[in-house]
């Protein structure tokens, strides 16, 4: 068996966002066919990481390497369409590359929103809108599909259906999928690898491993093995006291041993609610 194709590699990358480092010393990789999910509290650098991967933010130190000719499909967290911009679903699908009507209809059918081509984007419901975004992202036959909290604003069944579709996409297209999500239980079921982020990579590994990691519990609470973890996190710890040279040594599962002991250590009240 050949090694899976590496699509994106970040080595010791520090990403600065408006003057302050939002992510420090990140080592990250994603291979073709993987589903990787990024978890983390608000302001932990999730979007920053995605922006670095698509090339919108450069690394101030370290490197960001993308495979040559990498095609990225991107589903943004929110897409605001100015009311002054008339845009039909059909026209939206042709951005930035024109596609045939047949391709457009096929893409909409696959996303379970057939027959919407003539509608204005601003008239769609939340669920329809997200599906159209996904349909557009898939049209470029991406090697890497990036979803930034794509199910925000969808109800539980809507989100579940959306994630089932993501699974299908991977099976059919064989692309890698990188997503940011807050739907923890779905994430745990659907991902191959989970990355816990809080200004740096707190821990990473298989979902089952991460769910039991103390760093994860510090961020998301304990007791339910992650299945029903409540999203609660207060900024009770700082990362400023970390010496710059600290480069966590990731073990096989990918957890940084020093992380739990130093800055990510949970406070008592948070670990045992």
């Amino acid at each position: 068996m050949t090694a899976p194709e590496r699509l994106v590699t970040l080595s010791n990358a520090t990403i600065t966002h408006s003057g302050t480092p939002a992510l420090r010393d990140v080592n990250f990789r994603i291979d073709r066919g993987e589903i990787v999910t990024i978890l983390g509290p608000n302001g932990s650098g999730k979007s920053t990481l995605l922006r670095a991967i698509i090339g919108a933010l450069p690394a101030t130190t370290g490197t960001v390497k993308r495979a040559a000719g990498l095609s990225i499909g991107y589903v943004p967290q929110k897409l605001h369409i100015d009311p002054t911009l008339p845009l039909t679903v059909r026209r939206f699908l042709s951005l930035p590359h024109r596609i045939s009507d047949a391709m457009a209809e096929a893409a909409l059918t696959r996303a379970n929103v057939s027959g919407l081509a003539g509608r204005q984007m601003t008239e769609l419901s939340g669920g329809q809108f997200q599906r159209v975004l996904l349909a557009r992202a898939l049209l470029s036959k991406p090697d890497l599909l990036i979803l930034d909290e794509a199910t925000q604003g969808l109800d539980q069944p809507g989100a579940a259906a959306f994630y089932r579709q993501i699974e299908d996409v991977r099976r059919e297209m064989g692309c890698a999928i990188l997503m940011v999500s807050h739907d923890l239980h779905v994430v745990m079921a659907a991902s191959d690898r989970v990355i816990c982020l809080n200004g740096h990579i707190c821990c990473e590994g298989a979902p089952a491993h991460v769910a039991t990691a103390p760093e994860y519990r510090a961020l998301f609470g304990a007791g339910t093995n992650g299945a029903l973890a409540l999203y609660r996190h207060e900024h009770d710890h700082h990362h400023d006291d970390l010496p710059d040279t600290t480069q966590p040594a990731y073990d096989q599962a990918g957890c940084a041993p020093d992380c739990a002991q130093s800055d990510c250590a949970p406070t008592k009240t948070e670990t045992h609610p």
Partner: peptide, 14 residues
């Protein structure tokens, strides 16, 4: 048009 719609969307498309 793509850049007008959304900067990240444009960036992801190169």
């Amino acid at each position: 048009l793509t850049a007008t719609l959304n900067q990240e969307l444009a960036q992801a498309a190169g």
